[in-house]
Write a protein that binds this DNA or RNA. Sequence first.
DNA 1: TCGTTCTAGTAGATCGATCCAGAAGGAGGC
DNA 2: GCCTCCTTCTGGATCGATCTACTAGAACGA
Lengths: 347, 347
Amino acid sequence: MSDRPNLKTLAAAAGVSPSTISNAYNRPEQLSVALRERILDLAAEIGYPGPNPVASSLRSRRTGSIGVLFAQDLTYAFSDPYCTELLTGVAEVATSSSTNVLLMPVGPHSISKVYSRDEELRLVQGVRQAVLDGAIADGVDGSHPVLRVLAERGIPVVSTVDSTGPCVLVDDREAAAELGRYLRGLGHRRCVVLADSMDDGDPVLGGSDDRVFPYARLRALGVRDGLGDEADVVTVSAGQNTVASGRAAAAAALACAVRPTVLVAVTDVLALGALELLHERGITDVSVTGFDDVPRAREAGLTTVRQPVREKGRVMARMLTDPTTTQTRVTLPTELVVRASARPAPA
Amino acid sequence: MSDRPNLKTLAAAAGVSPSTISNAYNRPEQLSVALRERILDLAAEIGYPGPNPVASSLRSRRTGSIGVLFAQDLTYAFSDPYCTELLTGVAEVATSSSTNVLLMPVGPHSISKVYSRDEELRLVQGVRQAVLDGAIADGVDGSHPVLRVLAERGIPVVSTVDSTGPCVLVDDREAAAELGRYLRGLGHRRCVVLADSMDDGDPVLGGSDDRVFPYARLRALGVRDGLGDEADVVTVSAGQNTVASGRAAAAAALACAVRPTVLVAVTDVLALGALELLHERGITDVSVTGFDDVPRAREAGLTTVRQPVREKGRVMARMLTDPTTTQTRVTLPTELVVRASARPAPA
DNA sequence: TCGTTCTAGTAGATCGATCCAGAAGGAGGC
DNA sequence: GCCTCCTTCTGGATCGATCTACTAGAACGA
């Protein structure tokens, strides 16, 4: 079997210089229509698939793909409605600009843990070997080693977490504060916040904050702000952002010495789990709220905070693919969505 | 600002040859522990992020990422439970092997349409520029131009559509035939098959087959096989695989001259749409079946055919990432799942 | 006729690593 | 003391394109 044809092969076959072949694909206006036709005909004939993208990227320093990093495990991402909605926004922009989307698995990372060199190399391996022009980091804490690798590689990163670099945010704290004030108005004073975290095991009541995701921390703070000083607010770190975690966290919350009147979940998914548990146990005097306003929140009658997740994905992707966008810091609006799951606190 | 450090810089700084730096990252056993430590220390100090993956891929012909191609629009993929389940399986394997997952947008493709050269170049641009070691093609018809590009580039492709190359299949036709026989046993003789397709517009009754996805075609054939010759079977091409399409297609089906006793959707998502419409119109004497057994099918009481989608994703990803797998053609089992949505045909 | 501008195409360096064959130096055997 | 083997490290070719700067010749105006 003969060697795979490359640009030089084709150049020789066509009797032109390599530069001209390159131009035929990348700068049609630089050569005559007739010559370009002849070249592409010949390419089809000898089975040349176009310039090798790896070689092309090496020289041109462009790859035509953008990466997406999730704080949580990639395996969970596709069953998380927040993630899929964000990806949809990213995909819309990617599709319209013929850009590929690279999903990188990243190991869980704890701020406090110190990694050995080889542990860290393994943690960041996906990102080290990733071929991309820019990356979207969703909920990834600024201290995460993968962000350092990307910075060293000179790859632009747009984050959903507040930082000095480009980011697309919602005001998590203020949005949660608004929710808190609303709950305060309903008479709630004893509250447990259900927060997803990098933990894998059972829910931990009032556990340390350093494995809780950045947005979860802010939302918990905001709820405290809104409920006021005299309110009793405890956080449960629940583990992965899944319905099952929400159930377990709610169970842990109900087992508190002083029973809360409201469970404030930092995501709708956790809230749905909490609702499930309350329903199952026939408990009707405990309110639940969520955050995000995913499709199922509406069906479930969940009081929540809406954020424009798909738009977030679009904006982030545009910041990386569209050279004319100059904005480097965008804040998107949120909106309190009142439904039936939060009721006045029992007297 | 100084130039970004590269392998040669680091080699010079460490007083060793470039090969040694490369080995420090890729072949730790080829150098003494002390030297490797010294190199990695120095790398951290001068901010060298490790070998440039593009240059590395060019020489080594490995990229550390696998691609995924969906027959349908990438934007819809994340809201399609079949796709997300497949991706989850892929992600599991990718995570455990530190492989990245590349999602490539691909324009819709009609078998019969002839593309101009530049139209086709645009259609395949994402795939032409994609950096990957292998690709998973889900439901992509063998005639699709992107598959030719991948073949010319020498990139291995695992397909879910029967072909001469590697593939992971379910026996769509026989699975559907089993369903057909079951429905026949329930007395059904007038059937409309709801099939998703590359069309965008309104549902087309008995439209041409060439824009229907390959699996949809096979399942339609299987149902015919199972229902037998005397049964009246018509296909509606419904457009995208969405609940909304399912509703519209069901509406079209009910408008038939001879009203069907059963709507056989080639996917659960379409079936859910059909159920929604029937429920809304208060129609109780028309049965519905699906295919895939997605999570919501259970909640909806949908009679359907289960296929192990996540396992499919795992197997396909393994065939591309694990050099020890030699199997080139795998058939996974299916199972008829009887629930309440298919009832005996009215007399 | 001369100089200028424009178009179509070219030459050769370069991007940043990995691969393969080989060499230096020390250990071990006889 | 000599030879062999093993470990550790090196030199230089190579992967396949794009980039920048340049040229030949046509076209054009004065």
